[in-house]
């Protein structure tokens, strides 16, 4: 078997008496969508933050393409190829759609220590940004201010900015959250095609989307992975049904 693109080994984190992450070992392989599901408070956000660099685990490792990145900053993990999208959009609200995407392109292709030429005149950054906006279906809105975008359009922009990084692995925190049925279906299509480029670790509450997309699902409850398997296996798993899907086993 080939080396996983992204891997956690025994990640553990507690906040006082609350164990938010308990020996979490999951991996993300080339070409797949690996969904993480779990009830509220299961530790999904904690896991994402440990993977992306916002939180330092008490124990365990995060490995990106075989390299231990546990001690690295968020920025250096991003440069190493981790592309993250946020549950609550983290975008520069006063800036335009294009400027937000170009920030991503700048992070991927260049450095910010350029003080003179206008950034919008940088055709290399602009081309990358516009291509990604196009894929996310936002090219028409490129000069719109982000504050004026709808919730769904912001989700699309989250995705577009992550695309500009051309990451080796995506970590997506509830990309479907707040999208209507139509938006959710479109996002599902985009993610479906995206896995061929880079695998996706998908934290998502929308079960229809998860079951439609995931190659594998891991179920997180009280900070522990109680099961990992294919969609069929997880649906059939008695412990999962009891703990999470809310059905009597």
């Amino acid at each position: 078997m080939t080396e996983p693109i992204l891997e956690t080994r025994g990640l553990t984190k507690s906040f006082g008496a609350l164990v938010a992450g308990d020996d979490i070992s999951i991996d993300l392989r080339k070409g797949e969508i690996h969904a993480i599901i779990g009830p509220n408070g299961a530790g999904k956000s904690t896991l994402i933050q440990m993977i992306c660099g916002g939180l330092k685990p008490d124990a365990g490792q995060v490995r990106l393409m075989g390299r231990d990145v546990t001690g690295d900053s968020t920025a250096s993990r991003a440069r190493a190829g981790l592309g993250r999208t946020f549950q609550i959009s983290a975008l520069a609200m006063e800036n335009s759609v294009l400027q937000n995407a170009m920030l991503g392109a700048m992070g991927a292709l260049d450095h910010p220590w350029r003080f003179w030429r206008p950034v919008l005149a940088r055709s290399d950054l602009r081309d990358r940004a516009e291509a990604c906006l196009d894929r996310a279906g936002l090219l028409e809105l490129r000069s719109r201010r982000v504050a004026d975008l709808s919730h769904g359009e912001r989700r699309q922009l989250e995705l577009a900015v992550a695309l500009t990084l051309q990451p080796r692995a995506f970590v997506m925190d509830e990309p479907m959250a707040g999208l209507g049925a139509g938006g959710s279906a479109r996002m599902t299509e985009v993610l479906d095609a995206l896995r061929a480029e880079a695998p996706i670790l998908l934290v998502e509450h929308d079960m229809d989307a998860v079951f439609a997309l995931a190659d594998r699902i891991s179920v997180l409850v009280y900070g522990r992975v109680i099961a990992t398997g294919s969609v069929g296996e997880i649906r059939a798993n008695a412990a999962v049904r009891e703990a999470y899907l809310g059905e009597d086993a």
Binding site: G53, A78, A92, E94, L103, M106, A108, R122, T164
Partner: peptide, 24 residues
Amino acid sequence: HAPFGLALGSARQAPMRVETVGLS
């Protein structure tokens, strides 16, 4: 209007975003 200004303005508005595109 330079790349630096875009990055700095973004760091004011959305510092998490700036980090996740690999900038400090």
